[in-house]
Write a protein that binds this DNA or RNA. Sequence first.
DNA 1: TAGGAATATTCCTTGACGGGAATATTCCTA
DNA 2: TAGGAATATTCCCGTCAAGGAATATTCCTA
Lengths: 111, 111
Amino acid sequence: MDTTTFSALAEPNRLRIVELLQGGPMTVGEIADHTELRQPQASKHLRVLLEAGLVEVEAAANRRNYKLRMEPFQALDSWLDTYRNIWNERFDNLDNYLKQLQAKNNKQNES
Amino acid sequence: MDTTTFSALAEPNRLRIVELLQGGPMTVGEIADHTELRQPQASKHLRVLLEAGLVEVEAAANRRNYKLRMEPFQALDSWLDTYRNIWNERFDNLDNYLKQLQAKNNKQNES
DNA sequence: TAGGAATATTCCTTGACGGGAATATTCCTA
DNA sequence: TAGGAATATTCCCGTCAAGGAATATTCCTA
């Protein structure tokens, strides 16, 4: 995992844009409207997202439709695999501990 | 989803530290050794990770053991849910498209 | 209790990033 | 083909984050 996806998403306005694009492709103007960003800054942030591979553009005459790319999110997803293992492991340990505790209690109650 | 986890992971050395800690708790000195970071910078990065909630510390005399916290990763995981829906949706569309195409071909071959 | 090991903090400097304003570019249509 | 709409780019400035070096802090042990 390299850090470009993280840096792209580390900027609040860009994260906002990404979440906006969940609803489908959008035009620069629409994005600017929904984010209180001026058009130039919207363009700039979209450029960063584009270079990070988080979005792609399709030119339609005057307009540009920006759309989410799924690859980076899928990469994130598999990056998380390792951590899922870790937290499952920890959960199993806790689980075992609780079971042992319960077994112990049962034994006491028997006597 | 707020951006603090992303900014914490956006710094290469910090991402490196997080991945190191997959192997279990580590001391500041150990971390510094494994990352070509000087001790002060290691401390500083750990502070950031700490404040972002990505790690926790346990003091042991002179040493401090830093250890991963799972909550932020779990949060990331559920944040990804939305995007999983999106890519499944797209995959279904592609799937349907291919099936239609195949049905069409079969029809042609029949005649 | 002095010294040393492990860690944290401070100060400084530098480079990158984000916003604002102005301007350039592209494309459509009257 | 001139003008206008949509978008991109450039320049400037202020802020912030990261590394280096030095120093402070904490805790152990001889």
